[in-house]
Design a protein around this nucleic acid. Structure first.
Lengths: 342, 342
DNA sequence: TTGTAAGCGTTATCAC
DNA sequence: GTGATAACGCTTACAA
């Protein structure tokens, strides 16, 4: 280790300046890679920096710059895997930079949510925040962020905002494709386990299902649908409801993977073979999809890529509007679908 | 500039001081709840603070205090659910405080890991960091943190450190109990899917299995064991290996839930009934355990509670050594276990 | 190309 | 009790 020149604690810019015989400002220029610097000076200072193990204090730097190099991630999402994938994507974007990621889960049913968020945003003074669905679908929430002068990017299942503030998929189209796959297999009664009210993704995915079945002259009546709230338990309940029909569907599209897993679970409990007696399709392609038996046919949401892009839009606001904003999903056929028996 | 209260940007302590006719220091005393303050003065200043919507700038505060109110969470863990549970626990602890959580996933196989961590720690200057297994088991890693003057708490499956720097479970005991449950059901050949080499948890859990079977005079030979790396895929591979034995086990303990899920998956692929033909026990009680079919008997690790405690130990180092350090696991019997057929 | 002086918004010291 | 004044470690004018 390098010997410390001065007192206790980490070396500061002053130590570097003194030891290399230049001014603070010159050291600052070295740190910030200013182009107008004598090569000799630069090397001299860099040598001292290396010897001292000097690292600029980000607090001081951020105070002087009047900006805070941290990105906030705000979510209220029942899907753990999605949250974690998003985190990974953000970290992909900020790796090697001076940015940090601060996560902030919230409860969207908390009546004090807006007050709490206001306090949080005012305190943390983020460079920008990323907001996941379903909170990302709440326009009032972004009015608040605007008022607080906080830059943001929303993640959504449809066109919720302008490209500078949005990373989105097209869930309607994706689901339509998935349901058409079921139709192509010969299914005529296709059930829907839809997501919770108030979720834009739930709405888009339901419409995708509806568009597909009606376009092919198949029934889209309400008796073929059941609502869950994106959890395994409610997926089971929905499955019980649909499989208990006098004339149950031969295939079910569930609005996300864990609900699809719930449906599969219920089918097996009842001694039904999946996919023999019932084909099931999910949405998300989170870890559970490949994990359950049979492996789940689903739609992959490029969460990590979207998250990475969201972070980059915050870090480079000047080009945010021009960067990719719509991200294609991918249909992932697995063993949970086959032609109907009869 | 000294004159305006209505300038761009947020109000500062100076604005508050000027408008309430006191000095900065007095405002600072109000903010920090100094006890030696005239009640009238306090109320006057508080009124101005409320009116202005003033929020202290944490950067400036942290610079002056020479501390950074953020906690780091460092992990390299294949188990997403566990990571997320841990995050939730930390957030439980820091909710309503000025602390923030910064997450930092790493790759333990990266040869440059230590250099990268050194840089990260030097830059972020955390109040303290929490480290998850398996990185938490690497003593050299903590020697580095010590050298950097960074406080830490390790999460582990055994007594890795003194109580001030540790939250731990007793995995050996927990697994021993779980395997004894299998024995009580009548199983005589109990297989083990162990975790990856170099994981203390893998070691402890294997020893728990070994202690249980040998204590009851049952075979603990190596042919009944297979190694995975805590992922679903390797769980499947281990299952293929154990079920392919000429005389396969009637029950398998897998060192975590996702590997157990892999074993169940393979059993079903082979047309075996779980638990009829094969009983399976996992470890962790992450979401997957209740999600697969049949629901998995497992051991619940109180991750969230441990995480909360870890954060509190960092925030209050003075009492860290006296706080709870050992956290009890809980056996969770579900449908994946029954007595053997023959 | 480099240095000087004046902040950034807070807290600590030490008077009054 | 309260208030000048000097830190804290860095950056941005503006000079030189």
């Amino acid at each position: 280790m390098a010997g410390k020149s001065g007192r206790e604690g980490k070396p500061t810019i002053n130590d570097v300046a003194r030891l290399s015989g230049v001014s603070k400002k010159t050291v600052s220029r070295v740190i910030n890679r200013s182009p107008l610097l004598n090569q000799t000076t630069r090397e001299k200072v860099e040598a001292v920096i290396a010897e001292l193990g000097y690292v600029p204090n980000p607090q001081a730097r951020q105070l002087a710059l009047r900006r805070n190099f941290s990105l906030g991630m705000i979510y209220d999402n029942p899907n753990a895997q999605m949250v974690l994938n998003f985190q990974e994507g953000v970290l992909d974007a900020i790796r090697g930079t001076e940015f940090a990621l601060v996560i902030h889960p919230v409860d969207r049913h908390d009546p004090g949510l807006f007050d709490q968020i206001r306090k949080f945003i005012e305190q943390q003074r983020f460079y920008g925040v990323m907001v996941l669905p379903p909170l990302s679908e709440n326009d009032a929430f972004f009015a608040l962020l605007d008022e607080l002068g906080c830059n943001y990017v929303r993640m959504g299942s449809a066109e919720l905002d302008d490209p500078a503030h949005l990373v989105q998929s097209n869930d309607r189209q994706a689901v339509r494709g998935a349901v058409e796959y079921l139709i192509a297999q010969g299914h005529k009664r296709i059930g829907l386990v839809e997501g919770p009210e108030g979720f834009r993704s739930a709405h888009e995915r339901r419409e995708g299902w509806r568009e597909a079945v009606t376009a092919h002259g198949l029934p889209a009546d309400i008796s073929l649908t059941a609502r869950g709230n994106y959890t395994f338990e409610t997926g089971k309940e929905a499955g019980i409801s649909l499989l208990g029909l006098p004339h149950p569907p031969t295939a079910i599209f569930a609005s996300n993977d864990v609900m699809a897993a719930g449906v599969v679970h219920v089918a097996r409990e009842r001694g039904l073979d999946v996919p023999g007696d019932l084909s099931v399709v999910g949405f998300d392609d989170t870890a559970i999809a490949a994990t359950i038996w049979p492996p789940l046919t689903t739609v992959r949401w490029p969460i990590r890529t979207m998250a990475r892009s969201a972070a980059l839009k915050l870090i480079h606001p000047e080009t945010a509007g021009k960067e990719q904003s719509l991200f294609p999903t991918e249909f992932v056929p697995r063993a949970s679908v086959s032609p109907p028996k009869n």
